[in-house]
Design a protein around this nucleic acid. Structure first.
Length: 582
RNA sequence: CGGGGUGUAGCGCAGCUUGGUAGCGCACUCGCUUUGGGAGCGAGGGGCCGCAGGUUCAAAUCCUGUCACCCCGACCA
């Protein structure tokens, strides 16, 4: 196919749109791929739609290859199925809700577990029908609190979501693995730099879940990876290796010290080091006890919870909440302290907590035999050499402390470094939550019902357009991988001379005949404009037909490397075909 | 939801302090010249200055209110 730029619906912008910050947003807007219509809503112009469709096609091919079958649901959905799973309310403000003229409730689908489960229930009833996997590539709607970064986080986006239906856990595990393998093939074909990280299993509890994160400094998700092994994980999922336990016998007794004017960990450490105790203390020797309250879903009352962690670490709210999910977590207010006078603010120690029945969870670094400086439950007093396992025994451990670069990797190899990523895929062993909600059963060989178990697997298809742009661009513009590029060859007519125009037209026709997709810049613009636009648009191979034609040569330029080679006109077509097919 | 910022031509911006004819660059139209790195000259078209009140002889500009959008954070695939 030949696409003529003289008639292509395309206008490139010389300047960045004022609202575009991240590279993908800037370049996709400047290159005429997308246009903003509303916060978090973008139009796909011809070039952008081609890239989107190319990505869709790769996803579709690999999904089909796993045996999954494509279907499509409406985006506009009735309330009832979501009422049955409680998600009409549970999904919260992120759900787009609307009413029809009769006042009936509808929603715009944010994800489609309910519909898939109901559809399978409607069609299948025998164990002989299973397993089955269905998927769709469809527009999803989420009323994001803050859409941002162009099409990286929109309120309307294209997602591939698939769902596996199996008779037993082994089947689910196999379906999960099939998806995992397919996702690896998809993201490899797209040429992405990505990692697979362990995700927190969340409210579903215990089921396997992994995220595919494209590595990009503009990413919203922080993950850590080991400097030496292949270990990578979401910050929420990082486990802290526990140090070896130490003997308790023969250790110095705990001693209470008067420590005036030591409201912070820093001032406490300074005070201790000036107190002539014969050794040097650091913040890591102190045990900071943070008071929280938690509330289980559906309950009215809050329960106190104390978290003890080394004084040199802050609480990481995300990790804390992930560790306590599905319970709500909140900091204590003044009134809570007033109600519990045994809590001496700033001097809380394990003693008062345990004596008053407050659940006390500690960082995994707090193991038997470790000695700590901590609050003495009395204003202006701290206790030194409080020994875990001798002087206090916590109720358990919790992953609530911040993870820092340089921390040891949980797999024992190397240390951790933090990086940013963009979530491009998520695979999840859902289990029976939705099957239970709709009584999705198959009749087994013994005529007894078997409750179906499900997996759900998503890929952010439209987001991938932006992710590829994030990972593949330079200061001049986009650089598409061949597999998704809007064309195979961008032919620039550099000159108005009739023989040049005719020669370029001829080459374009031959390339088209050879089965390549050609973008032909036949506009009456100056060569400089055309070169700049070609680099902005980012087709991987640029063919310049210009003054060299008089000597029988044209110029083939590689967009990614900038390398230019002169090629004889008569072998230009086979040369380009081998480049593109190669 | 907290913090910061911005609304003036399709896009990017100045003008606002100190009220008085709405401007610049890009893009667009026409003519001539130009054609290997975002051309030159000339002539044009395009505006509810976010919206609503108020002050004033007079408001893009001052006052009040309101709406929208963007960025950072919180939250969220």
């Amino acid at each position: 196919m030949i696409t003529r730029m003289s008639s292509l619906f395309l206008r490139t912008l010389r300047e960045d749109p004022a609202d575009a910050e991240v590279p993908s947003h800037r370049l996709l807007a400047r290159g005429g791929y997308v246009r903003r219509v509303a916060p978090g809503g973008y139009s796909w112009l011809p070039l952008g739609l081609r890239v989107l469709r190319n990505i869709e096609q790769i996803v579709r091919e690999e999904m089909d290859a796993t045996g999954a079958q494509e279907i499509q649901f409406p985006a506009l959905l009735p309330r009832e199925p979501y009422e049955a799973t409680n998600r009409w309310t549970e999904y919260g403000p992120n759900l787009f809700r609307l009413k029809d003229r009769k006042g009936a409730d509808y929603l715009l689908g944010p994800t489609h577990e309910e519909l898939f489960a109901l559809t399978v229930k409607g069609e299948y009833s025998s164990y002989k029908d299973y397993p089955v996997t269905l998927y769709q590539i469809q527009t999803k709607y989420r009323d994001e609190a803050r859409p941002r970064a162009g099409i990286l986080r929109g309120r309307e986006f294209v997602m591939k979501d698939s769902y596996s239906f199996d008779l037993d856990d082994e089947g689910l595990a196999a379906s999960y693995q099939r998806h995992r393998d397919a996702y690896i093939r998809i993201f490899d074909r797209l040429g992405l730099n990505y990692v697979i990280v362990a995700a927190t299993s969340g409210a579903m509890g215990g089921s396997a879940s992994e995220e595919f994160l494209a590595v990009a400094p503009t990413g919203e998700d922080t993950f850590v990876r080991s400097t030496e092994s292949g270990y990578a994980a979401n910050v929420e999922a990082v486990t802290t290796p526990a140090p070896a336990e130490q003997p308790v016998d023969g250790r110095p007794d705990a001693q209470v010290h008067h420590t005036p004017n030591t409201p912070t960990i820093e001032s406490l450490v300074d005070f201790l080091n000036g107190a002539g105790l014969g050794r040097v203390f650091t913040a890591a020797d102190t045990l900071k006890n943070v008071l929280l309250k938690t509330r289980q879903p559906g309950e009215q009352d809050w329960t106190l919870l104390a978290v003890g962690l080394p004084g040199d670490r802050e609480v990481d709210t995300k990790r804390l909440e992930a560790a306590l999910e599905p319970a709500e977590v909140a900091m204590l207010e003044e009134s809570d302290f007033a109600r519990n006078p045994f809590l001496v603010k700033g001097y809380i120690g394990p003693g008062a907590l345990l004596a008053n029945g407050v659940r006390y969870l500690v960082d995994p670094r707090v193991v038997r035999g470790t000695a700590w400086v901590t609050g003495a439950d009395k204003a202006d007093h701290h206790v030194v050499d409080l020994l875990c396992g001798r002087d206090f025994t916590p109720d358990g451990t919790i992953e609530a402390a911040e993870v820092r670069e340089g921390d040891p990797s949980p797999d024992g190899a190397g240390t951790l470094v933090a990086e940013r990523g963009i979530e491009i895929g998520h695979i999840f062993q859902l289990g029976r939550k939705y099957a239970d909600a709709f009584s999705l059963d198959a009749l087994g060989p013994d005529s007894k019902p078997i409750r179906i178990t499900m997996g759900s697997y998503g890929i952010g298809v439209s987001r991938l357009v932006a992710v590829i742009a994030e990972q593949s661009h330079d200061e001049r513009g986009l650089i598409w991988p061949r597999q998704v590029a809007p064309a195979d060859v961008h032919v620039v007519i550099a000159g108005k001379d009739e023989t040049i125009v005719a020669g370029a037209e001829q080459l374009a026709a031959e390339l088209d005949a050879a089965g390549l997709r050609v973008l032909l810049d036949d506009r009456k613009a100056s060569p400089g404009v055309k070169f700049a636009d070609a680099e902005l648009v980012g087709v991987p191979t640029i063919l310049v037909v210009g003054r060299g034609l008089a000597n029988g040569v044209v110029e083939v330029k590689d967009r990614a490397t900038g390398e230019r080679v002169e090629v004889a006109v008569d072998i230009a077509v086979p040369h380009l075909v081998s480049l593109v097919r190669g």
